[in-house]
Design a protein around this nucleic acid. Structure first.
Lengths: 154, 154
DNA sequence: CATCGAATTGACCTTTAACGTAAGCTTTTA
DNA sequence: TAAAAGCTTACGTTAAAGGTCAATTCGATG
């Protein structure tokens, strides 16, 4: 399978709808390589690197930051190295996993809250006056644990 | 229940372990009120506002940005207003909900990937050589849909 | 009532992310 | 042999959540 460095930076840019600046930036971050150049020659990209750029885009859509993507690539690069390296990587990634899970919990709670708020907003008849237990304002206060935030009926 | 404006800004700062600058910043953003002042008098806070600051901290821990918190408060403030307002708010919040759900999906995918990576890292015996179908590197490539990212066996 | 710590406003500073943009020069290619 | 495309260098941008002066004023206490 031939994999010559045939594409120019502008080609990649057009392929993926990004700017050349972005591509150079990825290189700057160590995310994407162009083939070896001596001086300030024009960059050339092999199919392999085209695919890599595609992968970057994928991961970006996916919600990862460029830093995270770089770490994943690094992980891949060290994939077959010694056990010590892998252990420390695993450790590092476990803590990242914890963080991510925490973020997900917070996000879930947020989604839950938003849903509740929307539900209340949709339920028109609940909103005027303060019919006791069914009063949205009161339930709101209860939910938010901030009784003084909401003015009670009248 | 008495709710006089008795606390000074430094008191709140100490109570919650934040700086006075932060508290003023919250006021600047419309998150927190101090009681009406004429000129540049010292700010005074009633119990109500202490609770409000507590709520802000809660929501921050919770993962929300100050802007999001402000919006939630605004929502609470408009709670009992007319149907038109509520409808438009509901609309707005529905789109926020969509966004949040998307973010959650991305986060889930990320968590899934990370878990997988960690699992592979832990499975020491998979990592040397390329024993065909069980080769972590190859499966990695498959999973990542980037065959050229990982060097095949030998 | 004098004083000194606490508070006030205003203005600019900081950090990170992911590039944008400009300038001036060099490679490639038609 | 030019135009088109690319190169490097380097400063600009936007948003979040305050930090950090600086110069001044409040206000509680001896």
């Amino acid at each position: 399978m031939s994999d010559e460095a045939t594409h120019k930076i502008g080609d990649l840019a057009r392929m993926f709808g990004v700017t050349t600046r972005a591509i150079r930036y990825y290189e700057e971050l160590g995310l994407l390589e162009s083939d070896d150049r001596d001086g300030p020659e024009h960059r050339r990209y092999s199919e392999r690197n085209v695919i890599r750029l595609k992968r970057i885009q994928q991961l970006k859509d996916y919600g990862l930051t460029l830093a995270e993507i770089r770490e994943l690539f690094e992980l891949a690069r060290l994939d077959r190295s010694g056990a010590a390296v892998r252990a420390s990587l695993a450790q590092k990634y476990r803590s990242r996993l914890e963080e991510a899970k925490k973020r997900r919990e917070a996000l879930d709670a947020y989604i839950d809250d938003l849903s509740w708020h929307i539900e209340q907003l949709d339920r028109v008849e609940d909103f005027f006056g303060c019919p006791g237990a069914a009063c949205a304002a009161c339930r709101w206060a209860e939910r938010c644990d901030v009784r003084s935030l909401v003015t009670r009926g009248a």
